[in-house]
Simulated scan of single mutants.
Amino acid sequence: MMRGISLGLVTVIAAGWVTMGLFSQFQRKMVFPGPEGVDESLLSDVATQIGATELRIPTEDGETLYGWHRAAIWSGPRRVVLYFHGNASSLVAQLELQHLLQSEGWDFVGIHYRGYPGSTGVPSEAGLHKDATAAWKWVADKLDVQPARVAIHGRSLGGGVAVQLAAAVNPGALVLESTFTSIVDLAKEHYRWLPIGRVLEHRFMTRDFAGRVSCPLLVAHGAADSIIDVHHGKELARLFHADEYMEVPRIDHNDMLLVGVIATRYLGFLESAVPSGDRGLE
């Protein structure tokens, strides 16, 4: 009887370790799946259609990032939204937001992370933070804009990228849209039966940057988010003492959040943080 129990226990333990090993092996694909049906040819075609300037941005470790710059439809003092997309998204997924920002006097700059369409390399947490730094440097150097005139906007995984950059560079504003408190917290909710904390390599501890971000902050989250539950947004707003928190009814994770009245509030927040006139340049 004891021998049967021992063999059974060994089998369970062995199966558990095999499962953990597979999870560790494939977690990069889980965290950074990339967009479906998007390649550099499509990106170039869309960029031509919408008048976006295609970017090739070098990183400090030798990778090259693909990106877009879309200039504001006006001639006032330059303001820039530097945008970081979600883990399965791309630049073509946020065209409405880009149009909105352009029409309201904002330049839009967005990149594809390393390993995503058009960009070289293999994605990792450390790599994405290098990518964000490279994008910030491009904005500062090529567009000749001061940090106070730049708003950083991160969606989903991009929020984990954006918050660390904001803590380092002190931009004019930060927007966290549908973002998690950490990948560790999120993974524990989706894989309760695994000791996630021990095997996750890409942790994106967004909540750990509370107290290190001093710029105005907007947190926005869909109330019906089935991937990153709305409690993540509420907790981030609490931890960071967000200047504004927007919870949007009936909006799931992949729904367009910043539309209608919510888009108006979003633009109002950006305007209050980085005014369209000369204020903020001094």
Rank of each mutant, 00 (worst) to 15 (best):
I13D: 08
G76C: 09
T19V: 10
V219E: 00
L217Q: 00
S44R: 08
I73V: 12
Q94K: 10
Q146G: 11
L165V: 02
V81N: 02
L95V: 08
S156Y: 00
H253K: 10
Q98A: 15
V122C: 09
G4Y: 07
A93F: 11
Y245R: 01
R192S: 11
R207A: 15
P147F: 04
H129S: 07
S90C: 05
H253I: 09
V10H: 07
D278H: 13
L42H: 02
G115R: 02
K137V: 15
V122S: 14
H221Q: 15
W17R: 07
D278V: 13
H231G: 04
V38T: 00
G197R: 10
Y66A: 02
A52P: 09
S90E: 02
I251F: 12
L82P: 06
F26S: 11
L7S: 10
L281K: 09
I262M: 14
I251P: 05
L101V: 05
S156K: 01
L239V: 06
K142F: 14
R279A: 12
G211H: 05
Y66I: 00
Q94T: 08
V199T: 10
A15I: 07
S41K: 15
A88P: 04
I152P: 03
I152F: 04
S119K: 01
Q49W: 14
Q98I: 14
F84T: 02
S178G: 13
P35Q: 00
S182L: 06
S90G: 07
E96Y: 12
L128P: 06
I73T: 11
L157T: 09
G76M: 13
A162S: 04
E235G: 01
V175W: 04
T59A: 00
F23D: 13
E271H: 13
T264W: 13
D131C: 02
L128N: 07
E40Y: 03
S41V: 15
K188Q: 15
M1G: 12
R203T: 14
E54C: 06
Y116R: 05
A15D: 03
H241M: 13
A173N: 05
H190I: 06
V139I: 08
L128Y: 03
G62I: 05
L7C: 07
A162Q: 05
A220C: 12
G110A: 13
M1P: 08
L128G: 04
E201Q: 15
A132L: 05
S182V: 01
L281G: 10
H112P: 00
F180W: 06
V46S: 06
V12D: 11
H202T: 08
H202D: 12
F180N: 02
L128T: 06
A47M: 08
H129T: 05
D141F: 08
I57Q: 08
L176F: 05
V80A: 12
H99I: 08
Q27P: 09
G277W: 07
G154S: 02
G8E: 03
K137W: 06
G4I: 12
K234C: 05
V219F: 01
A134S: 08
F240L: 05
R198K: 07
V261R: 11
F23T: 14
D208I: 03
L22I: 11
F32Q: 01
S272V: 10
L257G: 04
R265K: 15
E40S: 07
D252H: 10
I152R: 03
G115Q: 03
H85S: 11
T120V: 04
G127Y: 01
